[in-house]
Each structure stands twice: as structure tokens, then as C-alpha cells.
């Protein structure tokens, strides 16, 4: 590692003051699962590392239809917390797909969003959930919609002196969900990840469908046209396949050394269909349960 100064503030105010002072030369450290590899290989060279693990940002609160998650909520909490499972079970399914058990011990929700890997699960899930992020700096707070937060590969709307403090999602009931991912090897980032959330009405028609994809562009994307095409439809296999095709055909994923763009597109279509099918099945089941 390149030498740096280390600060472990105990209040958000202190942390923000440090960031305000050092701006570009400072780096926030949360779970360290993305930052420390870069430090180890001298690819990141901050002058100051501001360790935020001492801040009280690990709360999980559910009230009036909202679930509020602190930025320091760890991946393993998403996997294991009953509150989260009750109010937003898609987070559990997504968290299980993240890296290996050691990554989930330390990696954080805020870090995952701030790091903004295009193939990461949580940014895609938050995009599907229409989550809102609370972001703080020495000069105040603001709220950003998840879909506006990521602005490119590994880049976000965060200013250098800002910290993500909280993520808020609505806990709409009776929703079916699915996260489908295709990774080259167990425990790796997926080539493509697809998140589907579906609500059906009493008559079994799609009341609301959301489809978000990761790994297919420089940031997570919502398949708005596909969502639109599903609304009010009876979710037959053909309808779901049609919607997945609509989503797929609007994508032009990048090629890299590990997968070609056209193959990623194929995956987006197949995983999209599978995710929708599973989400619909779940939606029908929970709608049935609710109706009883």
C-alpha cells in the first residue's frame, strides 16, 4: 500500500468535516471489500482514509410502509435480518448472490452503491425498488433516487465530500420477486443480473412490474418498455417471454475480455424471462395468501 493517514471519526459531523477538509484526497472506508484490494495493489492512493465504521449508520427500521437501511448495513444482515426479510425479501435473495461469505461479513450496502460496479446486485435491486438514498455533506443533506445515483461505470452522483447515510425503500406488500444471475464461477460478480418485482391484481393480471438489469450497460438499467408492456396483462408464458424480449432488444451491452456484448444480451433475455416467471409465481401466491 501507498502510505496514508487514517482517521476513524465517531460522529457523522466529524467524518463530514474531514471529507470537507480533504475532499479529493480523502477516501471513505466502509466494508473495505472494494477499496482495500485497490489499496493493496496501489491502484488507489488516497492521502487520508476516513473509516466510517464507527458511525451509527447500521440501523434497520421499518415503519409506515418504508424500510430504512443505514449505509453500514452489511450484506450478511441483508441475508439474515428478519425485519428485512419480512419487509423486503428481495434484498435477502440478492445479498446471497454477493461474492463469498467473507465479502458478506464486511461489505456494506452503502459501499456497494457508492462503488457502483455495473454488475453489482444491490444497485440493480435498488433501481428496481425505486429506492432513495440520503446523502450528507458538511453543508447539508440531500436525497437522490437510486436510478439517478449511478452515473457511469464506478461513478456516482456523490461529491467527494459526501457520504451515503441511508437507503429507503417502500415495503409494498404482496409482491413477487426474483433475482436471476449468471456468473462465470460460483461467487463471482455476475455477467448479467436481473431483478424482477411483480404485483398482480385480484384477477391475476399484472398490476405492476419492475425489471432492472445489471451488467448490460455502464450502470443498472430499468426496462421501462417491458414493464409497460406487462401492465394489465395476464402473465402467460408468452406474455412474459415477449416482455423479456422487449427488454433485451433495447440493450446494447458492452463486450469485454470475459463475455461479448451479444452474449450478455442473450443472457439478459433468458434471465429476464426466468426472473419474471418466478416473480409472477410468487406474486400470485402472495396475492392468494392475502386474499384468504
Amino acid at each position: 500500500m501507498h502510505p496514508f493517514e487514517y482517521a476513524a471519526p465517531e460522529t457523522l459531523e466529524d467524518a463530514l468535516a474531514l471529507l470537507h477538509e480533504h475532499r479529493d484526497e480523502a477516501k471513505v472506508l466502509a466494508g473495505g471489500q472494494s477499496l482495500v484490494p485497490l489499496l493493496n495493489y496501489r491502484l488507489a492512493r488516497p492521502r487520508v482514509v476516513v473509516d466510517i465504521n464507527g458511525l451509527p449508520l447500521d440501523g434497520v427500521r421499518a415503519d409506515d410502509g418504508r424500510l430504512r437501511l443505514g449505509a453500514l448495513v452489511r450484506h450478511h444482515q441483508l441475508e439474515e435480518s428478519d425485519t428485512i426479510a419480512r419487509h423486503c425479501p428481495v434484498l435477502r435473495e440478492a445479498a446471497r448472490l454477493i461474492g463469498n461469505v467473507r465479502v458478506r461479513t464486511l461489505g456494506t450496502l452503502g459501499g456497494s452503491l457508492a462503488h457502483a460496479d455495473p454488475a453489482a446486485e444491490l444497485p440493480a435491486v435498488m433501481t428496481a425498488l425505486d429506492a432513495r438514498l440520503t446523502v450528507a455533506s458538511a453543508s447539508g443533506r440531500r436525497s437522490i433516487a437510486a436510478r439517478d445515483f449511478v452515473t457511469g461505470p464506478l461513478t456516482t452522483a456523490l461529491a467527494p465530500d459526501e457520504i451515503v447515510t441511508e437507503v429507503e425503500v417502500s415495503t409494498s406488500p404482496a409482491r413477487g420477486f426474483a433475482v436471476e444471475e449468471f456468473a462465470r464461477r460460483a461467487g463471482d460478480f455476475g455477467l448479467v443480473v436481473v431483478v424482477a418485482l411483480v404485483r398482480v391484481d385480484r384477477g391475476g393480471r399484472v398490476a405492476d412490474a419492475r425489471l432492472a438489469l445489471g451488467g448490460v450497460a455502464d450502470r443498472p438499467v430499468r426496462a421501462a418498455a417491458a414493464e409497460e408492456a406487462l401492465r394489465g396483462q395476464e402473465p402467460t408464458a408468452a406474455v412474459l417471454a415477449g416482455a423479456a424480449e422487449i427488454a433485451r432488444d433495447r440493450l446494447d451491452p458492452p463486450s469485454d475480455a470475459f463475455a461479448s456484448g451479444p452474449y450478455r444480451r442473450l443472457l439478459a433475455g433468458v434471465l429476464g424471462r426466468r426472473a419474471l416467471a418466478r416473480a409472477v409465481a410468487g406474486a400470485i401466491q402472495s396475492e392468494g395468501a392475502e386474499a384468504r
Binding site: P37, N53, H76, R102, T105, L106
Partner: peptide, 25 residues
């Protein structure tokens, strides 16, 4: 880089990559 697992320790009982934890932290 957190991939291989030979540096595994238990941190408060959970597996962690000691290569990705700052000692000071």
C-alpha cells in the same frame, strides 16, 4: 484481493479476509 480465502480469520465469529481489513480498523 479477497478471493482465495487463505487469509481467513474469524472476526467476531464471522469469516473475514484479513487481507482486506486494515489493522487499525
Amino acid at each position: 484481493e479477497g478471493v482465495c480465502g487463505v487469509c481467513t480469520v474469524l472476526l467476531d465469529g464471522r469469516p473475514a479476509s484479513s487481507c482486506l481489513v486494515l489493522a487499525a480498523g
